[in-house]
Design a protein around this nucleic acid. Structure first.
Lengths: 144, 144
DNA sequence: GTCCATGCAAACGATTTGCATGCGT
DNA sequence: ACGCATGCAAATCGTTTGCATGGAC
């Protein structure tokens, strides 16, 4: 069994409490999505002096090493523990991000790509089910 | 036949020279990718006083109306005329973006999505063919 | 002991906002 | 003529950089 600390070391990085804590947080919430600020807010609890810059650096390193995944939406980088391709659905209304699975064996994503692939993200902008329901409800109210 | 100006009008927007020029530029270079700054540089030729802010506003409106597509990479918004889903391959080395086609009927992308889809982008980070070749060549040179 | 990581402050760059003027309808 | 669009300046926000101190190996 490979610990998070081993993973960090195996990628040529030194193990520090900050790095362990950040990787653990993202990995243990694999279906969730975090901005750098979200991660900073979490690490600050145990580590009151850690500046945002350090969190930004650590996150970027983890992405470069493939330890976590990231994509950008609404002008911000979003980090997640799920590294295999899936759909990140971004709701224009509530700004939440939801994961959905892709169909099939995923090879269709990279079949025509000429070059070396590091990571693949599918981002869908739209209106989520919750917001659709609420918008529908408020339209009915207005129509009364 | 629907002109670009008609398309703008049909989406509830007023037609102005700035808007026509921007939409035409992006649509006539459908396989290319533009940052807001790229677009601004082009419009400024005919329109020396147009501020970046106006270009940003126009681009964002076009995306919201589905007239063009956009995605974000390396901290910047990128605009393109191709609105149907395809692969945007971003080379970490040369920073160029290349289009590749997706396989099949594309329904696999949104099959599991619960909500209303506005747009779908597939972004692949990697190293492009050109850079792979150059990197390989320079490794051989070093090994001599 | 050496080198890399952290902590901190300041800078940066892409984008947004507010407001007066101008133009499309 | 009305209302939205443009032009302009300033502000905002996420992120990056430079440098001194501290901790991992």
């Amino acid at each position: 069994m490979v610990s998070l600390e081993d993973e960090i070391k195996q990628n040529g990085l030194k193990v520090t409490p900050q790095r362990s804590k950040i990787l653990r947080y993202i990995r243990e919430n694999s279906g969730k999505h975090f901005s750098a600020e979200d991660v900073h807010k979490h690490v600050v609890i145990d580590n009151p002096n850690i500046p945002p810059a350090t969190v930004y650096n650590i996150l970027k390193m983890f992405v470069d090493r493939g330890l976590i995944n990231s994509f950008e939406i609404n002008g911000k980088a979003i980090y997640e523990g799920r590294v295999e391709p899936h759909v990140n659905f971004s709701c224009e209304n509530c700004k939440n991000i939801y994961d959905f699975d892709l169909e099939g064996d995923l090879s269709y994503l990279e079949k025509n790509v000429d070059g070396k692939v590091i990571s693949t993200s599918v981002t869908v902008r739209g209106i989520c089910r919750n917001c659709l329901n609420e918008l529908e409800a408020s339209e009915k109210t207005l129509a009364r």
